[in-house]
Every structure is written in C-alpha cells, then in structure tokens.
Amino acid sequence: MAPSSMARVAGRASPEAPIDLVQLATNTLGNRDLEVQVLHLFKSQSRLTLERLESETDTAARMDLVHTLKGSARAIGAQRVATACESLEGNMKTAANAPTERLVAAVDEANGYICDLLEG
C-alpha cells in the first residue's frame, strides 16, 4: 500500500485547508493511489457539475446536481464545498435560480488545493 497524502504533505495540512486530508485518508483506507484517483474524479466532476448547473433550467435537476456534488465533497473531506452545497439546496427551495457564487468559490478553492497536492 502506498503512503497516504498525509505523510506527503506533512505540515501543509491545516484546519483551514479546503480538503480534510485525514477524512480523505480515512475514506480511502490510506491508499495513496486511490486518493489520487478520487481527487482527480472530484476535480473533473465538480467542474462539469458547475457547468451543468449554470445551463440547467429544471429546478429538480439543479437540486440533484448540487446534492450529488455535496456527497462527493463530503467523501473527499471538502467541507466548505459541502456546506456551500447545503446552503444552496436550502436557497433553491425558495428561489430556483439562487446565486451559486459561494459554491463556485468553494469549488475553485478546493480544486486549486487538489492541484497543489497532486503537482506538489
């Protein structure tokens, strides 16, 4: 089994980090290769989800997109993304076209951090 990302980025993980590396390592059983795959998948999925969210007009479909992204974010320890999704889900119940800026910012931050982890 390859060492987890926690060992590789010792000192760079912090409570303020957009990805909880302990949560990621726990969910991937410390398998570094799996961590890398999951992070790549999240980056790809989150970008596609935001694109679809922007163009989607059906409220139920928009809520499904946000809900799916929330689950993915929780799986990798991207709590700010999950929290932004949760907030947006609540806002979409009263305003179908609720603003997504907070979610976009959280996803951008998480994906930037993922790029740093994978390229660093």
Rank of each mutant, 00 (worst) to 15 (best):
G77W: 05
A98T: 11
E86S: 15
G11T: 04
R62N: 03
R74A: 08
L29G: 06
F42H: 03
R47Q: 10
D116H: 02
I76G: 05
T28S: 15
L34A: 02
V107Y: 00
P99R: 01
Q37S: 06
A10L: 10
S5V: 14
T49V: 00
E109V: 11
E109K: 06
T94P: 03
I114S: 06
A84Y: 07
T100I: 12
D64I: 07
M6K: 10
D20Y: 00
G120W: 03
H40Y: 06
A75F: 15
A13I: 08
E54I: 01
A105P: 00
V66N: 10
A82H: 06
M1S: 15
R80M: 02
T59I: 14
K93E: 15
L39G: 09
H67T: 10
T59M: 14
P99M: 00
L50Q: 08
D116I: 01
R12Q: 15
Q37K: 12
A60G: 10
C115N: 13
V22F: 01
L39N: 09
H40C: 06
A96Y: 14
T68H: 07
I114W: 01
L41Q: 09
N31P: 06
L24K: 05
L88G: 07
N91R: 13
L41W: 05
R32V: 10
G120D: 11
E54N: 07
A106L: 05
G90D: 15
G112Y: 10
A110V: 12
V66S: 06
N31I: 13
A73F: 04
L48M: 14
R52Y: 03
L39C: 10
L21D: 06
L53S: 08
P15K: 05
D64P: 07
V38Y: 01
C85W: 01
L69W: 13
A13Q: 14
S72T: 10
Q79E: 15
A10E: 14
G11L: 11
L39V: 00
K70A: 05
V81Q: 02
N97V: 02
L21V: 04
L53F: 11
L118C: 08
D20M: 07
N97R: 11
T100E: 13
D108P: 03
R32H: 10
R8C: 01
R102K: 07
L69D: 12
A7H: 06
V38G: 07
E101I: 07
C115V: 12
A105L: 09
D20C: 05
D58E: 14
A61V: 15
A10I: 03
N91I: 09
A60V: 11
V38C: 00
V9E: 03
A98K: 10
L48G: 13
A60C: 02
D33M: 12
A84Q: 03
A73Q: 00
L118G: 08
Q23T: 12
S44A: 14
V38T: 04
L29M: 13
A82D: 07
L50V: 04
G120M: 08
L29I: 12
E101P: 06
V66D: 09
E56H: 02
M92A: 04
T26Y: 10
R74T: 01
